[in-house]
Design a protein around this nucleic acid. Structure first.
Lengths: 219, 219
DNA sequence: TATTAAATTTAGATTTGTCTAAATATTCAA
DNA sequence: TTGAATATTTAGACAAATCTAAATTTAATA
């Protein structure tokens, strides 16, 4: 059975490679896993021996099928736990990630199935990230960062790109939230800040940096 | 921060010594922890260095205050998780222990507090064992094994002594459950089996061995 | 109480995951 | 395209937790 350490490596490789399909580098892994590059190299050799990854010296690493399956199950568990922590226990947005990092390593199929049932088979977690189903399949969504919208567009906020507690706390403090419907009022040319109609009367202004990290969908 | 291994040792020492206050032996620990006596000796030296236990070579081991506190917090977490798994997720009696063994090692005060709130601050877990409160205090209950009752006594079933899945599955299959009110109809001298009035019409017979493992309270 | 049996500890090794420092490969820029 | 900067790997070591086999202590019993 895979150790928690192995699971963390596999999940991190997945998250680093899922975007573009490019290989993950040793240094990217050492940074995300908060360990040294030498340790990463050691571990990659072991993971390659177990056939979880395809590793080419100096060229980086990709998951192969076994590794992908493991990663998807871990991400499923992580995101189901996050949903539970947020929806059922009312734990704040910015705290759930660290707790879910621990809970995702608990081994019990029945546990995760029952949680999934309790939550009514959610397709997205509280950050708007897709939750793989029991077979590992993900439901993607047409979405874009808010800063790529045009003035006048009607949008629904569906997620965030940046998951850092800092940013999440900031979002909690302003009148914007996941699932909310908004309209882009104006985009300021000077600094690319963006004015958002949040309801009938109120307008809120976001910096470009904030808008880049908010994911929206046209409606 | 204590490793899961250390936590398992501390909890096991607690459970072996809570009854009579006698020391736990190396061999008892090696059996419960499914490891060798040599490994136990090694670990006991380390725990003594950390001042979690009082260990006298060849004489066994007791927890000191730090160890006791750690054990009570672990038992609190274990029993709260068991209650959650049973009451909120409907996971069967005989499966919850193994899952809680993993969950009890998750480190998050807010998580356990929120679960405690969701469950309405339970004082007993699904097996009838007391749950320490946040400060570590246990609420004991006047109870005795069912085999020590006399014919005619009116009792409430409050817990089980044996937690083995085998026994729990057996209990699930007969018309007796925690919190149920029963009356002892007759005790058979020959084999000490015991006849229980489970409701107006029905009587159920338990072997002495089964009755020893069912805990009851007079009403 | 002397001897044997059982329990416990010690000695020395192993596995997993990590580290530092040194060596090697790759990349980037002149 | 060559040399410096950067990234990666190797070598050797270490800590945590475990093991087997041997030595020692305690308990049991004749």
């Amino acid at each position: 059975m895979a150790s928690q350490t192995v699971e963390n490596y596999i999940k991190t490789i997945y998250l680093l490679t899922e975007m573009d399909g490019a290989s993950a580098t040793t240094s990217a892994l050492s940074e995300k896993l908060d360990t040294t590059a030498a340790s990463v190299t050691d571990m990659l050799k072991k993971l390659a021996d177990q056939n979880l990854i395809k590793y080419i010296k100096y060229k980086g690493v990709k998951l192969n099928q076994d590794g992908k399956n493991m990663a998807l199950q871990l991400i499923r568990k992580h995101r189901i736990w996050e949903t539970f922590l947020h929806e059922k226990l009312n734990i704040s947005w910015d705290s759930i990630h660290d707790i879910a990092e621990q809970l995702e390593h608990v081994k019990s199929d029945i546990l995760i199935d029952k949680l999934d049932t309790m939550l009514n088979y959610p397709k997205y977690d509280p950050h708007g990230d897709p939750i793989p189903d029991a077979s590992g399949k993900l439901t993607y969504r047409l979405q874009k960062p808010l800063n790529q919208s045009l003035s006048g567009e009607k949008l629904r906020i569906v997620g965030v790109k940046d998951h850092k507690p800092n940013f999440l706390k900031y979002l909690d403090s302003i009148p914007l939230a996941i699932d909310q419907v908004i309209e882009v009022k104006e985009i300021i040319e000077f600094d690319h800040s963006i004015q958002i109609k949040v309801d009938q009367e109120n307008v809120w202004t976001l910096s470009e940096q904030a808008a880049e990290n908010i994911l929206v969908k046209n409606i």
